[in-house]
């Protein structure tokens, strides 16, 4: 029983480990080396999904630290990604408080709202408080593909969530 609980605990840590790994490692979720315009932000999808479905798995503190690590690795001003990630988390928490049962279509639409605000904050802060120039077109492509890939990860994470749920009920 104890052994099973340990395995369940490790499985529960999956999204958190993935979020930290994507932030700290140089693994490339931006495939622009292979396809010029294809890049998407998997971190935003992870944060939104788990903040919406199982906030106890992905605490806000972890979201904050993942953003901070991402900023250091990417060379952005500290906490700019944290603010963008926390915005996604905020929208997800708000949607969770306002709705009882959601479907993929509603999640997809609200995810669009969350990444819109998140990228808006990121862009405003970067252009006004930093000397780093960024390409608006590339941000648009990134946002677009993040939105396009959301349903795929939604199904994947929903399946993963069901595994965690099964583990908890036993």
């Amino acid at each position: 029983m104890l052994h099973f609980k340990t395995i369940n605990k490790i499985i529960n840590l999956g999204p958190l480990v993935l979020l930290y790994y994507l932030s700290v490692s140089e693994i490339d979720s931006h495939f622009e080396n292979y396809f010029e315009i294809l890049s998407f932000n998997l971190q935003l999808i992870i944060i939104y999904f788990w903040a919406l479905k199982r906030p106890e798995i992905l605490g806000s503190g972890h979201v904050f630290f993942a953003g901070l690590i991402n900023d250091v690795v990417m060379g952005f001003p500290l906490c700019i990604s944290s603010l963008a990630y926390l915005t996604v988390s905020l929208v997800a928490t708000y949607i969770k408080n306002m709705t009882v049962n959601t479907r993929i279509t509603t999640d997809w639409f609200t995810f669009f709202v969350s990444i819109f605000f998140s990228n808006l904050i990121f862009f405003i802060l970067l252009t006004n408080f930093s000397e780093i120039a960024i390409n608006l077109t590339e941000i648009s492509y990134n946002t677009f593909f993040t939105l396009i890939f959301f349903p795929f990860f939604w199904f994947l994470f929903t399946y993963y969530n069901s595994i965690i749920t099964i583990g908890k009920n036993v």
Binding site: P55, G59, S60, L78, C79, S82, L86, S89, L90
Partner: peptide
């Protein structure tokens, strides 16, 4: 939440201060 140690508003303020 049950497993949350910090509220979002607290973290947003902290992030804002560090950013500035």
């Amino acid at each position: 939440g049950a497993a949350q140690k910090f509220s979002l508003v607290f973290l947003i303020i902290i992030a804002g201060i560090i950013f500035v």
